[in-house]
Design a protein around this nucleic acid. Structure first.
Lengths: 145, 145
DNA sequence: ATTTTTGCAAATCATTTGCATATAT
DNA sequence: ATATATGCAAATGATTTGCAAAAAT
């Protein structure tokens, strides 16, 4: 869970101006439960008359991804999506049933990346780990997809 | 490096028919040095008059990805690409300068995934690890981007 | 006052599809 | 002979862009 203040604060800290569309978008992103697409945000913005338009959504998500406030996700289906991130987590595990996602603590991945770097001779700059599966609630049928 | 025979063999083994476009595409994919996009294949096919058209390229890459002969890649830039795979490797490290890629042996990743599963309570079905960095040759400036 | 941001609609880009024809089995 | 695969060109879908107007600093 990331709150709207945090998202808005990230815009501000990075020197972007605080505008109404960005305020609305921050709330919108913060209210998302799992991953979401640009298009979903657009639909919700329209339904709730938030006055955030398509171009602004794409432009803002772009900025937020730069700032590390959201992470771009490539679902196994090939669709693009985003998730809001705690700044600490660099990876996510995504539930393939309900779409909710959880930040993933390191758990030795850094070590794996280093070891791969050593073995292949690459100087590794970035890595992305995306995990997909069923969250605990969905495993027990406690939740609707 | 994956050779054209292997790719063609994968089509055959899975019950797909051997056609001229598929033969040409197999050679084309096998000749790729790093990652490549559908569009790059199309351009090369046209330049060399291979007679493999857009639709066939997309359809075939789709099949090959299903069969695990190529892997879909999502570059940090957001672009989509593919790499030919040895069937054993499930992940790739990609050089951000020359685009070449190498299959990545496990190196403990399975263990990391399991441990993340245990910690989060998710039942993990798939994971993708993509690593980006500079390959040994590019680090030493031995190679043009 | 100046710079940034926005909305709009059109443009672009990648990918997919329908359907008639050609090809492999 | 039958099923599968292809080419073509059009359709789709997502994202990006140019530009004039609006809002933030």
């Amino acid at each position: 869970m990331v709150d709207a203040e945090t998202i808005l604060g990230a815009f501000e800290a990075a020197g972007y101006r605080l505008t109404d569309p960005r305020r609305a978008l921050a709330r919108l992103v913060a209210s998302q439960d799992g991953h979401f697409s640009a298009d979903e945000l657009l639909t919700e913005s329209r339904r709730a008359r938030l006055g955030v338009t398509r171009a602004t959504i794409f432009r803002s998500l772009d900025v937020l991804a730069e700032l590390g406030v959201v992470e771009r996700l490539d679902l196994p289906s090939g669709e693009h999506a985003f998730v809001a991130c705690e700044p600490v987590h660099h990876h996510h595990i995504v539930c393939s049933s309900c779409g909710r996602s959880t930040g993933v603590p390191d758990h030795g991945l850094e070590g794996v990346a280093e070891s791969i770097g050593r073995a292949t001779g690459y100087r590794i700059d970035t890595h992305r780990l995306e995990l997909f599966g069923l969250c605990p609630e969905c495993q027990q049928g406690k939740r609707e997809p």
